[in-house]
Amino acid sequence: TTFEIRVGDLRITLHNADEEEIRWAEEALRRGIHADEILRTLEERRR
Rank of each mutant, 00 (worst) to 15 (best):
A28K: 06
E44M: 07
E37C: 12
D9P: 04
L10H: 11
E27L: 06
E21Y: 04
I22C: 08
D18C: 11
A28W: 08
T13P: 04
R45T: 09
H15C: 06
L14Q: 00
I22H: 03
I22T: 03
R30H: 08
T41I: 11
V7T: 02
V7F: 12
E43N: 10
D18Y: 09
R23L: 09
A17F: 04
E20C: 13
T1E: 15
R6N: 14
H15W: 07
E19N: 13
H15V: 11
A28I: 04
T2L: 11
F3M: 15
L42E: 00
T13D: 03
H15F: 11
E21M: 12
E27V: 08
D18M: 11
L14W: 02
R6E: 15
E19K: 10
R31P: 01
R47Q: 12
A35S: 08
R46V: 07
R11W: 09
E20P: 07
I22L: 06
E27Q: 08
R30Y: 09
V7A: 02
A28Y: 05
E20L: 12
G8Q: 02
L29M: 08
T1H: 14
I12N: 01
D18N: 13
T13Y: 02
E43R: 05
I5Q: 05
H15N: 06
G32V: 02
I38M: 09
T1K: 14
D18T: 14
E19V: 14
I12A: 01
I38T: 01
R11H: 14
R47L: 12
I38E: 00
D18R: 09
D9M: 03
R46F: 07
R40K: 12
T2M: 14
R31E: 09
T41M: 11
E20Y: 13
E44D: 12
E27P: 00
R30D: 04
R40V: 10
R45Q: 10
E21D: 13
D36C: 14
I5L: 04
L14V: 10
L10F: 07
E21T: 11
R31K: 12
H34P: 14
L39C: 11
L42D: 01
D9R: 02
T1A: 09
D18E: 09
R23V: 11
A17N: 02
A17W: 02
E27Y: 04
L39N: 05
I22D: 00
N16H: 06
R47I: 11
E20T: 10
D36G: 09
R30T: 10
G8F: 01
I33R: 07
I5S: 02
E37Q: 08
D36Q: 09
E43H: 08
E26R: 07
D18G: 09
R6F: 15
R40M: 08
E27G: 09
T2H: 15
R31C: 08
E44G: 08
E44I: 08
R46M: 06
F3H: 15
E37A: 10
D36I: 11
I38P: 00
L14D: 00
E44N: 07
E26V: 12
L42R: 02
I22V: 09
E26T: 14
L10A: 14
N16T: 03
H15R: 04
T41L: 10
E19T: 10
I38H: 00
R46A: 07
R40A: 10
D18P: 03
T41H: 10
G32C: 13
R30Q: 07
D36H: 11
I33H: 07
I12E: 01
R31Y: 08
L39M: 08
A35K: 05
R31A: 14
E43S: 11
R45W: 10
T2R: 13
R11I: 15
R6L: 15
T41K: 11
R30S: 08
T1Q: 14
T41A: 10
A17C: 04
R40E: 11
G8C: 02
E19G: 10
I12C: 03
R11E: 10
E4K: 00
V7W: 12
V7R: 00
I38Q: 00
E37L: 11
R6C: 15
E37R: 06
